[in-house]
Structure formats: structure tokens, C-alpha cells
């Protein structure tokens, strides 16, 4: 099933890719969404996720959601960011 999601990049790629929410249409599984985001933005998301980057869906880690068998719904918000320390 196809859904429209909002994607935003924080902090390092925010000004080059995702200064505002990108509306992306994708199949509703997380692996499909990652492939679609890579295709639309040109950002190597799978590679980066294995090297310290994080991805939150509605504020929750993609890794946890994947374990829980989560599927995306219309309007879900995805944010992508490098591993950050405290302020």
C-alpha cells in the first residue's frame, strides 16, 4: 500500500536536502521507505544507518519499529540525523 510521508533531515544535511519537510510517496514498509528516500534525495541512507546515523519515525527509532513490525501510515514523519551528543 502506498502512503505519503514527511521526511526531514536535521543538522548536517538540512540545508542541502531537507530544509523543509519533503513529501514522499512510498510503499508502507520501512525497507521500502528507505529505498524510496534514497532514490528521491540521493542520500545513501542504508549505508549511513549502518555508520552511526539515526532515523526516527514519529519520534521513535526505526530500529525499534522494525523489530515491532511497524508499517507507515499516511502523514507519518521521518527524520534523519547523524549521531549527536548532548548540549
Amino acid at each position: 500500500m502506498k502512503v505519503s510521508i514527511k521526511v526531514r533531515y536535521f543538522v548536517t544535511e538540512d540545508e542541502t536536502i531537507g530544509n523543509e519537510d519533503l513529501i514522499i510517496e512510498t510503499e508502507n514498509t520501512l525497507p521500502d521507505a528507505i529505498k524510496t528516500i534514497e532514490k528521491v534525495t540521493g542520500f545513501p541512507l542504508s549505508y549511513k544507518l549502518n555508520r552511526g546515523y539515526g532515523m526516527l519515525v514519529n519520534g521513535r527509532s526505526y530500529y525499534l519499529l522494525q523489530k515491532e513490525g511497524f508499517t507507515l501510515s499516511e502523514g507519518d514523519k521521518v527524520v534523519i540525523l547523524p549521531k549527536l551528543g548532548g548540549g
Binding site: 536535521f10 543538522v11 548536517t12 552511526g52 547523524p82 549521531k83 549527536l84 548532548g86 548540549g87
Partner: peptide, 18 residues
């Protein structure tokens, strides 16, 4: 990406949105 990217750019507030 943090100490050489995010933090010089936005200061300690680089984590605000996160």
C-alpha cells in the same frame, strides 16, 4: 558529524530538533 559538523554549525543547540 557532530563535533566537526553539527556543533560548529549550530552550537550546542544542534540537538534541539532531535
Amino acid at each position: 558529524p557532530d563535533t566537526g559538523g553539527a556543533r560548529p554549525k549550530y552550537g550546542t543547540s544542534s540537538i534541539y530538533s532531535f
